[in-house]
Design a protein around this nucleic acid. Structure first.
Lengths: 199, 199
DNA sequence: AGCGTAATACTCAAATTTGAATGCCAGATG
DNA sequence: CATCTGGCATTCAAATTTGAGTATTACGCT
């Protein structure tokens, strides 16, 4: 299930009463656009949906000049309960994130050996660059300094992941360079019958 | 953008002519349900959409008894070009995957210290368990043996990630246990003004 | 032969997500 | 003081995703 519900519910709870734009501002300041669905539409949709379900309450709608009116929300009793439930679900259940690179890698054989090696090395560079960027940002006390300390741990996790993955990329690049993995497939091979779907 | 397009296009290209159910079968055999959107509806939708865009072509519709007719698809010239484009995009562009746990962790302060530590340790266990499961499955030559070798590298990546993340969980659990990270927040603190949104 | 379970194959309404588009206001620039 | 840029605040149609639902056949078991 979607992460957006938890994010919006939790954020409203945290900074209430808030309106959509502020929610988005806050989420972007968390760099949440890199790891969650925070397109404007998603936020406004979630806000309305949650209100409609009685988990949020419209508190006020202000208007400045002729700009679109802002609707501020706050969390309700029911919302608080739902938040606790969702929070626990995501803390206790493990689900692998959806990673677009997996899909790409599955089609390694469709790529040329040269390009595969180059792309993997490039990816390793990107990943290390990303890690380095996060590291220096942390070290130099970037991030305006208002962030609660657990935010840094989140960044540390990103760094650790990036480094692990970078190393994997280099190892696989070596394998591909050595010709140990299939590349340059021209035509499709006949595939064996795959196994069944279990309900 | 969605990974499903690439996955379906590539799979049809690989095993054509195929029908939806087979595509799903194959994807599940790759355990793709763990890292991509492969609900039945997604697959049939993508198939129809791609056909409508002229990237796939309906090749035949067979019928066995009174069961729903199967429509087999194959890739077109245009589809092949699109596949190459998408493949390259995903190989060369780095995008962080969307991870539901990040959202959960962002609300660490809303959790009790006790529970946070327990959940983190539990997550570490889960992650190590997952890694171990994959490892033994590989070692014992699980996975029916028809998988191309690069599939194993994908599993190795999953393992490496799981281990990295498990270690992080333990470290953070220690920090939380030591009281170095905020937990048990009761009320919301007033937040400072966050920065602006750049277009 | 009859029964239950599982596999086959897809549909559809509902929910979610995207991101371009809209339009206003404030401050800087020339 | 006219214009341009960029921040504010949301809407909306279109695209995607979900997953339960439908209905048929194959297979093993008693």
């Amino acid at each position: 299930m979607s992460t957006t519900r938890l994010l919006i519910l939790g954020l409203v709870r945290w900074v209430q009463p808030v309106h959509g734009y502020d929610v988005r501002r806050e989420l972007l300041s968390w760099h949440a656009d890199e790891w969650a669905n925070v397109a404007p539409g998603s936020i406004y949709h979630a806000l309305k949906k949650l209100a409609q379900e009685g988990l949020l309450r419209e508190v006020a709608t202000e208007q400045v000049g002729a700009r679109p009116a802002r609707t501020r929300y706050e969390i309700t009793e029911a919302g608080e309960r739902e938040f606790q439930t969702l929070l626990r679900r995501y803390w206790w259940e493990y689900r692998q994130p959806i990673d677009p690179f997996f899909a790409a890698f599955a089609f390694l054989p469709a790529l040329g050996q040269r390009e595969a090696v180059a792309a993997l090395r490039n990816r390793a560079r990107n990943l290390r660059g990303h890690a380095e960027f996060v590291r220096t940002a942390i070290d130099r006390g970037g991030f305006d300094g208002n962030e609660p300390p657990h935010t840094f741990e989140l960044f540390r996790l990103m760094m650790a992941r990036s480094e692990t993955e970078a190393q994997w990329c280099d190892e696989v690049a070596d394998l591909v360079a050595a010709g140990d993995l299939p590349t340059d497939a021209v035509a499709a091979a006949p595939r064996p019958q795959s196994s069944n779907i279990q309900t």
